[in-house]
Design a protein around this nucleic acid. Structure first.
Lengths: 96, 96
DNA sequence: ACGAACGGTAAGCTTTGACTTACCGACGAG
DNA sequence: CTCGTCGGTAAGTCAAAGCTTACCGTTCGT
């Protein structure tokens, strides 16, 4: 999972507020700028962020499509898990 | 995140079908039984699974409360992220 | 009571991957 | 044209954590 790393999760949370340049992100996080760059590459490959060039700066923002896709994926998983649990309750409640 | 590891995610997916004993889980995964035990400890501490003793066997199942809690937590995050994106669209669409 | 099955724990190894420093190319300002 | 800013990439280091083997306690069947 692309959000498995805590730094990456922090980046996503910051970008959830508003788009940022790489240097801005690094300034708000306890890691160096290259580290942020590497994390952004992972997040971009995962489709969770998009990049926009503005002069010498690269503005990164969340990709709503990627975020929604991940959300839906998890949503179906939750539903299936909770549905199967409802069936399993029968076994547990045989003798109250 | 407790689901950051792929093996742990696989365990959760298997448990989403139906509860299993530790040995059963290990039989369906490409790792040893002790490895499964260690992952189950993490998942239990995270509140995602519960344990029930049945003779010499330990039956593990998903904890719907923990699953729902994580779901809600992510849900609020998605909503906030997508809401902020709607605001940011204004900047991008200034000059079509 | 004894043996087998089940599973948790400890110890150690190994590997993954996150981080830093160093370097280089791209772009804009002067 | 040149300098400063911004940021991606490479190389190397290091610590976190996942996996295995070995061991032990617990429980059930015979």
């Amino acid at each position: 999972m692309a959000l498995g790393d805590s730094t990456r999760l922090a980046i996503v949370k910051v970008l959830a507020e508003r788009p940022r340049a790489v240097g801005e992100l690094a300034a708000e996080l306890p890691v160096s700028r290259p580290a942020v760059s590497q994390h952004l590459k992972v997040l971009k490959d995962a489709g969770l962020v998009t990049e926009r060039t503005a002069g010498t700066r690269r503005i990164y923002r969340l990709n709503p499509a990627g975020v929604a896709a991940l959300r839906d994926q998890l949503e179906t998983f939750w539903n299936r898990a909770l549905a199967n649990y409802a069936d399993a309750v029968d076994d547990a409640e045989e003798i109250p």
